[in-house]
Design a protein around this nucleic acid. Structure first.
Lengths: 136, 136
DNA sequence: CTGAATCCTACTTGATACTG
DNA sequence: CAGTATCAAGTAGGATTCAG
């Protein structure tokens, strides 16, 4: 049931290699979970799942993210339809970010994985310790 | 509920930065999902969820993975306790890889995310198309 | 305040060649 | 067969500077 991860290698095997951006659309699953493994996306999704945030507020909230990466992460999430970006023409301007329905749905699906992580983290740490010990 | 992603920034804020390997153990969630976003881990987990594989067999099955990356991916998964590695002293030697219980459990938790991906991929593609159109 | 643009470094990955 | 070692290339990420 995880096969969908694998791009077809029969039909397109001898076609010119795809660009990273094209590649994205080939495999539905990878296309979506690319954000999950991403260093910052999950953090941002987590914050936004609590309430809408303004840019600077979000930046302070995650604290160790650079402004460049926050901008980029938000753009990517917005592009994929997970995040809404609303500009208020105040002076100075302010921008509010919030989750779309799709974004909320993604966060929901993430929860099971998070619960797994929290529950099994000790086992993983233990396995690592053992492995490292056995392999010097 | 996603806060666990965020490393504590109060207590350790002014301590020396951690190495990548140490960092791993700081956040339980990121520590686990690091494999999820990884380009190959999910593929490998997917294959192994069907049956045990030998090295070369797995390599052919994923086809576009390099032997180097397969070795490395398997090592990482083994280290974290998701994969069993069993060596048969035949001649030439053969090695069999299979999922541990923990590995099976991880795959199970992944399913919800995969279903989300398959179900919502069209929406994401659509959102991207729109976004790209609006932003030239 | 919210970003865009540039530069620069460090890690990741792939190709290739070699070994038990 | 199942790896390890080495080197080259690509990519992601941080720091800094500038702009609406």
């Amino acid at each position: 049931m995880l096969q969908e991860f694998k791009p077809e290698n029969g039909a397109n095997a001898d076609i010119a290699p795809l660009s990273a951006k094209q590649m994205e659309d080939v495999c539905p699953v990878r296309s979506v979970i690319s954000h999950v493994g991403d260093k910052w996306s999950t953090l941002v999704l987590g914050e936004l799942s609590q309430k809408p945030y303004r840019f600077g507020e979000l930046r302070r909230s995650i604290s160790d993210i650079s402004q460049r990466m926050l901008t980029q992460t938000l753009r990517d999430l917005q592009r994929d339809g997970y995040v809404n970006r609303e500009v208020f023409p105040t002076k100075p301007p302010s921008v509010e970010y919030s989750l779309t329905e799709l974004g909320q749905s993604l966060v929901f699906s993430l929860k099971q994985l998070i619960e797994f992580a929290l529950e099994n983290h000790p086992k993983v740490v233990d396995a690592r310790r053992k492995f490292d010990a056995e392999n010097m």
